[in-house]
């Protein structure tokens, strides 16, 4: 089958943009529209776009880790963020914040970390499920 050249070329520019945008969504989530879940979905779309325009196995090579691990790491990050307050004698999942906002990132606290975990998990899960459906031709 003749492959179109348009999609691969477009993806080469779109994918990094979408990934950056997804991180932007993740970080602004606490104050503006956005958040880890939708950010993860956008990032996953970007990765899947790449898989469609090249091949699923190319995406396998591109990913630093098996998507199963990515999903597990995400879940672990979220869970871990809940445990941090325990070390300060506060109940599980109490929101704790760093006093001074960091440059670029803004205010950072355990909910931020929790959202990062959601973001990573959603990328892992979606890519994992979709790649299960995908087959190299």
């Amino acid at each position: 089958m003749q492959r179109s050249i348009i999609l691969p070329v477009a993806t080469r520019y779109l994918m990094p943009l979408m990934l950056v945008f997804s991180i932007f969504l993740l970080l602004r989530g606490h104050n503006e529209v956005g958040g880890g879940f939708v950010g993860g979905l956008v990032a996953a779309s970007a990765l899947m776009l790449y898989a469609i325009s090249t091949s699923p196995s190319a995406l396998w090579k591109l990913l630093p880790l098996d998507p199963r691990f990515i999903a597990a790491i995400g879940l672990f990050i979220s869970l871990f963020s809940g445990f941090i307050p325990l070390f300060y004698g506060k109940p599980f999942m109490t929101g704790m914040w760093i006093e001074t906002p960091l440059p670029v990132l803004g205010k950072i606290g355990t909910p931020t970390l929790f959202d990062v975990g959601v973001y990573v998990l959603v990328i892992g899960v979606v890519v994992w499920i979709l790649l299960e459906f995908a087959e190299d031709e």
């Binding site: 989530g29 606490h30 958040g35 880890g36 809940g82 929101g95 909910p111 929790f114």
Partner: peptide, 21 residues
């Protein structure tokens, strides 16, 4: 309490964070 202006997201990650987990 949760230092966020996006109430939807604050509910998701903080107030009802356990549900999200």
């Amino acid at each position: 309490l949760a230092k966020g202006r996006n109430v939807v997201n604050v509910i998701l990650v903080d107030f009802r964070g356990l549900d999200t987990l």
